[in-house]
Computed example of a mutant assay.
Amino acid sequence: MNELDLNLLYTLVALDECRSVSGAAVKLGKSQPAVSAALARLRDFFNDPLFVRSGNNMQPTPRALSLVESARFVLGRVGSDIVAAPTFDPATSHQTISLALSDVGEVVFLPSLLKQLRRLAPRAAVRAVSLPANDVAAGLEAGSIDLAMGYFPDLKKHNFFQQTLFSDTFASLLRSDHPVTASKLTLKQYLQLEHAVVRAESRTEEVIERYLARRKLRRQVVLTTPHFSSAPIIVAQSDLIVTVPEPLARYFSRVSAQLRVVGLPFDSPRIDLKQFWHRKFHHDERNRWLRSVVADLFQRSPKSR
């Protein structure tokens, strides 16, 4: 098999169809000497003349006729299974779409994305997971996770692509009947209030903490929790304040009349919300389609790398 060039099979089929060296040369876009040389190699390999001259044409031998049928089958499989670009049809796909979402990502992305995916890929289930950064990286590489969406500062290795969808700021939440009634806090008020702090796996809190540390501003932290879902419930029943990415603050104030958003007394740091994928799947048709759906829905300030 090491001596059989796959291109020789194309010559074999062309000779059978054209029954002449010159005709096969035109069909293959090659010179007549090149086709004659290929025929000589075929004859040597199969130890058979394969095509013999009869009048103005070349007629196949019985060995050639049996080979041509197999060659057409092999070349057809090569064309459809190897050479042809893979296609993906979201409308018929049953493959589950797996997304790793940060705390912000789940609130900001999932409702709109699920609605769009149900429309475009109605047969595909959607699976959202929340995992430690190392598990997200391993899942993206293994293909068990299609995309990571949100704030994932650990996915910086060269094996990952990332695309910024948009950036947002931070805001604070107070209970609706809090003694502080201002819509925007003064710095004195912000520092005097007692704070709840969310230190989740996504590490979004690090953005605001680094910002305050650079300005040597220290909050009075009386509660630390790993869950964004519990912090607003506690704030709604106390005099505590919690500072979270603004999309989360807006969401919690919409779903609970007991909470209201208050502005920060300083220019808020910005947090980039991105989608991430492993370089193994950069050219995968299904992954490319999914990334385009996400970008079309959410990208405001494109910045990809």
Rank of each mutant, 00 (worst) to 15 (best):
A85Q: 15
N56Y: 13
Y151G: 03
A137R: 00
A71I: 05
R118F: 05
A133E: 09
D146N: 10
S54C: 12
G150R: 06
E69S: 14
T96G: 01
N56D: 12
V83H: 07
L117F: 00
L67S: 02
S112A: 13
L117T: 00
P111S: 11
Q59K: 15
L131Y: 06
A124V: 04
T96F: 07
N56R: 15
G105D: 01
Y151V: 07
P122W: 05
I145R: 00
G76V: 04
L101R: 07
E141S: 10
L113G: 02
P90W: 07
L114I: 07
K115Y: 05
S80Y: 09
G143R: 03
N56V: 15
V126I: 13
R63P: 00
A128I: 03
V107A: 03
G79M: 12
A142T: 11
M149L: 15
F88K: 01
V52N: 10
V83W: 10
G79W: 12
E141Y: 10
L140D: 03
N56C: 09
V83M: 10
L114Y: 05
L147V: 09
L117H: 00
I145K: 02
D146F: 04
A85N: 12
A125T: 08
N134E: 10
G139C: 01
T92H: 13
P132F: 10
S54M: 13
V129H: 08
P62Y: 06
R63Y: 11
A85S: 14
L99S: 04
V104H: 02
L67P: 00
A125R: 13
A85M: 13
S54L: 14
V78W: 02
V104S: 07
R119L: 12
G105V: 02
L120M: 12
G139D: 00
A84F: 06
L99Y: 04
D135Q: 14
N57S: 14
T87R: 14
Y151L: 06
V107T: 11
S66E: 15
A64W: 00
P62G: 08
A121W: 03
L117V: 03
V68I: 15
I82E: 09
R63S: 12
F109T: 01
L117M: 02
L65G: 09
V108Y: 11
S98A: 13
Q95F: 09
A121E: 04
G76L: 09
A100M: 08
L75M: 07
I145F: 00
S93N: 11
M149T: 07
F88W: 10
P111G: 05
L67C: 04
A142Y: 09
L75V: 09
P86M: 08
S98Y: 04
R53T: 02
L114F: 06
S130A: 10
V52H: 07
I82Y: 06
S102K: 03
S66F: 13
S98R: 14
